[in-house]
Write a protein that binds this DNA or RNA. Structure first.
Lengths: 184, 184
DNA sequence: TATTGTTATACTCTATAACTATA
DNA sequence: TATAGTTATAGAGTATAACAATA
């Protein structure tokens, strides 16, 4: 997305102020002789390419963009999808438990749940046993929305990732990334 | 980090409101019979574990935390480190070029550069050829700081990642993640 | 007219303190 | 007293529009 959209390299597009001298045709890996001006030669990333965190971050951004595109028909963000998934698997839990499991801070979870509840995807009920806590449940609409989302994720999003990486590498990456998330 | 810090599972800590009946001893993979109360059984993540983006995001957060810890002695964030690295490899570029290469929007790059310049790590000079643009250069202090940071990254941060993943998987992951960042 | 650096601004995420109602 | 949900708030990160100086 970023990283140089100027595809064609124009080595000499500016009329220099100094005297214009003849110049040798530049070699393959051009380094513009005139150090100023909009030289527009692709920059050297250096050891950035060897920094796992750097590429990982950029990959993560792309993956989330792809997720949003694929799941757009049901209008769910990755975070919202993860909440619905968790509610489906763990009905009757309270906000603290769901939020904690997803690494969301309780105060920040309130607005998230408001949005999902306002869309009729889940409900909050005061627990009769502990009237401080809210029992969370998916609604029928929430379940059907989740089902649609899961299909979009599997058929479009994950399918795309598997297509780019290949099934074996996709699986390997899943394991490595889980290991890092767990053991680092 | 999150995901249940309550290690010991207490299956029956609440006095139920209804009549207390005898209950069979729960099986190995406990599901608390009473659906309410602070049941504190680890939640089921379901297909979240198969979602590459989910684990990738969590891994990325851990990696950045580790980076910050390791590089703390020179007080550089991952973003600042990437800027210094790029300035070192590509001296004399302007703000637009550096920002674009790193996927940073030009307006947001201004404050970042202010911080680095105020710390005496780099300089902005108006280009004599195009007085609109600023030629960016590392200072000597910037270079020594970068050198220290690079050593910390290699000896502590990347070393930790290689330690967790193993050298072969680390290399494999580097390639996969670069592929995703490029081709997705 | 177009571009560079900049300001202003807004929206999302994330983080912390403190309140309320319950326990 | 401690906990669940909540409010308020502050700080990063990211996004767009528009302006001054320059081309």
């Amino acid at each position: 997305m970023p990283v140089s959209n100027k595809t064609d390299i124009v080595a000499e597009s500016v009329v220099g102020k100094g005297p214009r001298r003849l110049r040798k045709k530049a070699a393959a890996s051009v380094v513009v002789s005139d150090p100023s001006g909009p030289s527009s030669v692709a920059l050297d990333l250096g050891e950035l390419n060897e920094l796992l965190g750097y590429s990982l971050k950029r990959a993560q951004l792309r993956i989330f963009e792809d997720f949003l595109r694929c799941v757009a028909p049901v209008k769910l963000t990755p975070a919202q999808f993860s909440v619905l998934l968790l509610l489906d698997r763990n009905p009757g839990r309270n906000q603290t438990e769901i939020a904690m499991t997803l690494g969301i801070l309780r105060p920040n979870f309130v607005a998230m749940l408001d949005a999902l509840e306002n869309r009729g995807l889940c409900t909050r009920q005061r627990s009769p046993n502990d009237r401080r806590s809210h029992v969370l449940m998916l609604t029928d609409k929430g379940r059907t929305t989740l089902a649609k989302a899961k299909k979009l994720v599997a058929d479009k999003h994950e399918a795309r990732l598997i297509d780019v990486l290949g099934p074996r590498q996709h699986r390997a990456m899943l394991e490595m990334v889980a290991k890092l998330a767990k053991e680092l």
